[in-house]
Design a protein around this nucleic acid. Sequence first.
DNA 1: GCTTGACTTAGACATTGTCCATTGTAGGAT
DNA 2: ATCCTACAATGGACAATGTCTAAGTCAAGC
Lengths: 138, 138
Amino acid sequence: MSDLLERLRGRGWRMTAQRRVVAEVLDGEHVHLTADEVHARAVAKLPEISRATVYNTLGELVSLGEVLEVATDKRAKRYDPNAHRPHQHLVCGQCGAIRDVHPKGNPLADLPDAERFGFTISDVEVTYRGLCPTCAGA
Amino acid sequence: MSDLLERLRGRGWRMTAQRRVVAEVLDGEHVHLTADEVHARAVAKLPEISRATVYNTLGELVSLGEVLEVATDKRAKRYDPNAHRPHQHLVCGQCGAIRDVHPKGNPLADLPDAERFGFTISDVEVTYRGLCPTCAGA
DNA sequence: GCTTGACTTAGACATTGTCCATTGTAGGAT
DNA sequence: ATCCTACAATGGACAATGTCTAAGTCAAGC
């Protein structure tokens, strides 16, 4: 986390209380917050932070490649700070819980040339959907 | 398409001009329209159709399993009438073009038990991202 | 400790989607 | 063929999420 702040400062990022708070909120494993959730938690630490700043900062972190946008549910974008270790997502369709997962194999190899329509493919996203133990047990 | 209307009628779906128009708009291969685009095309055929009806009808078609919701971009949901042949999507990050693709292999097998967190997995979505020939050529 | 340009703010606006009360109508009953 | 009635459509308000702008504020270099 502090390494994140260091990295950003090194890239000429101006350090402000707001940006620090947003970065702190996004710390951790299996963290996938919506912009609104980030804002709520940021407000708890810094009451006067505005929605626009949270959106701006999240957008900047995404551009800098420090945070990933994920669209696991169809409502709001979620922000995943685990951007430096490639991974996929496992989502509970009931409660929305999300876990980072690391499948073996390379899905790209599974797509025949004939199915590529001449595209230059740069990335593959995989989302596993199902029920978490709690929701399945009910 | 008319088989779709037949199937729906058989399930007790009341047939109205609006529903017919929405179903017609969704006909074809590699069709992935947003709700708004569906509405725009439906209006062209039936000027008095309302937004709410389009949303309702799309929701019903999804519930009935005749149409899939896909979230390839983070803006609006898209509707894919190709619900009866399992497939994945290939998306151009520049222009947003979407193609249906059929990868070999089973991505589910690539997820080790240790990475399943006790989830019951029922579905896997794969999205290939890149550039289409037109956008890559530019 | 100034200065300055980048950052933040509040709130208006935009887009996408949902809800509800009212009006209309498909399709079976007569 | 006409009537009934439950189901469907309408339009407009509302909600959720995200974007933009003008004006004020402040971090960081001098």
